[in-house]
Amino acid sequence: MRWGTAVGVCVVAGIVLPMLWQHSLVDLKVYRLGGSTLLDDASALYDARLAGLPFTYPPFAAIVMVPFALVPWPVAVTVWTVGTFLSLVAVWRMSVRLSSALLLAVIAGSLLLEPVRETLGFGQINLMLCALILYDVLDARHARRGLWIGIAAGIKLTPLVFLGLLVVTRQWRALAHASAGFAVTVLAGFLVSPHAATQYWTSLVSDTTRIGGLAFAGNQSWNAFLIRLTGNLEGGGAIWLALVAVTVAGGLWLSRFLWVRGDHLAGISVCALVGLLCSPVSWSHHWVWVIPLGVSLLRSCHGRRRIVVGIAWFGLFTIAPIWWPPNHDNRELDWSFGDQFLGNAYLIAALFAVVVLAVSRQRVSAPHSVATSCHVA
């Protein structure tokens, strides 16, 4: 019966996913642009454009992308897509223990989640980084635990938020490894291209105009919410900074609370949520953390409530109501109250998750490999 269900889910996903896949791996093309520019003229890394799109990542990310720039496009696409899919499998395996049939079903079904299918469609790196960070934080068996967080942050800055988790849970050795790993990525960038690295770390790192329209519906962050609400394209200003401060303080407190309680997965997921909410730009495909966060929510519920919450949570990120109101060309600035409610659905779901996890009394036993190896005061 379980295998029959799993096969049925795979068939449905195989039929529906191509209908929703509307992209041409444009971000992978930009990644390759970074790698090829580094080989041709490293100093021009942040001047190169692909159909108007610039390379917006740290110099170390371009170094990582060099192998994908050297191989033919079909090979790069195949390796990248397979790597993304294997990362999705790893995220599920590290988040929850399931039988083989159920694991196959949830993996196939999660391909329809909007953040996942957007990551696949754009050729984004989000699932790879998510899997890497989960492994680094949850598995204490490797000697340099924390190192991969630093390397992930060197590729894409958002993983820096997990240094906050290491601080509030007093995992000093892992923090040292993460900091050293990040420092090495920064140094590598300066060694390969001093000009590009100086340009990035002195000016481009804070330039959100290179990333895209901040008001766009796909930007699910506090900053975007305030922009759409007020109509001020300059950003949320002082209100946004205050909201960020409250979110960081409250989010890291909850992350520590969940970690100490034994729910390490929830602690990591809430920390990721802090990064998503507080970043000036959090595109919908950055929200792949809804998988471990959703698993954490289900663990905190019981009986029929668990079924309702599971359907509501994963259903929301499948139908993706953020795309229902008018979007593109700053039409988001004219949203009605109903449009605001739908268009900021990911933010509302995040608040729901925080409340549920904060009030839950469910205590989760920490995995042996982490519980016996991490110092948490």
Rank of each mutant, 00 (worst) to 15 (best):
F190I: 10
L241M: 14
R210A: 11
L229K: 04
I239R: 03
A215N: 07
F216R: 05
F190M: 04
T230M: 10
T208R: 00
A245K: 04
N232G: 01
G236W: 07
W222M: 01
L187T: 14
Q199M: 13
L191H: 05
F216S: 08
N219M: 05
I211D: 02
H195W: 11
S193A: 08
Y200S: 06
N232E: 11
Q220E: 14
L226K: 02
G213S: 13
S203E: 14
N232V: 14
S206Q: 04
F225T: 05
I239S: 05
V192T: 10
D207G: 07
N219H: 12
A238K: 09
T198H: 15
H195V: 15
W240Q: 06
G213N: 15
T202I: 05
V205D: 01
A238P: 02
F216Y: 13
W222S: 04
G218A: 09
E234L: 11
L229Y: 09
A196S: 12
T247M: 06
V205I: 15
G236R: 03
V205M: 13
I227G: 02
F225H: 06
V244I: 14
G212S: 08
L241A: 14
L241Y: 14
I239F: 07
L187C: 11
G218W: 02
F190C: 09
S206T: 15
L243C: 07
W222N: 02
G235S: 11
A242Y: 03
G235D: 06
A188M: 14
T209C: 03
A217D: 06
G212K: 11
E234Y: 01
G231E: 07
A196V: 05
T230I: 04
G212I: 11
F225D: 02
F190V: 12
Q199K: 14
G218L: 04
S206D: 02
L204W: 08
F216G: 00
L233P: 00
N223S: 12
G231Q: 11
L191F: 08
F216N: 10
L233D: 01
N232L: 10
L243V: 11
I211H: 03
A215H: 10
L204Q: 11
D207W: 05
G237V: 01
L226F: 10
G213Q: 09
N232K: 13
L226C: 04
E234C: 00
L241I: 12
I211N: 00
L191A: 15
V244E: 07
L226D: 00
I211E: 03
A242F: 08
Q199F: 06
V192W: 04
L243K: 01
T208K: 02
V192Q: 00
G218V: 05
G237M: 08
F216D: 03
N232H: 13
A224L: 06
N223H: 11
D207T: 07
L214A: 07
N219P: 05
I227V: 15
A224N: 04
I227S: 04
G218H: 00
A215G: 13
A224C: 08
G231P: 08
S221A: 13
Q220A: 11
I227L: 02
L204V: 07
G231Y: 09
F225W: 13
R228T: 07
R228E: 01
Y200G: 06
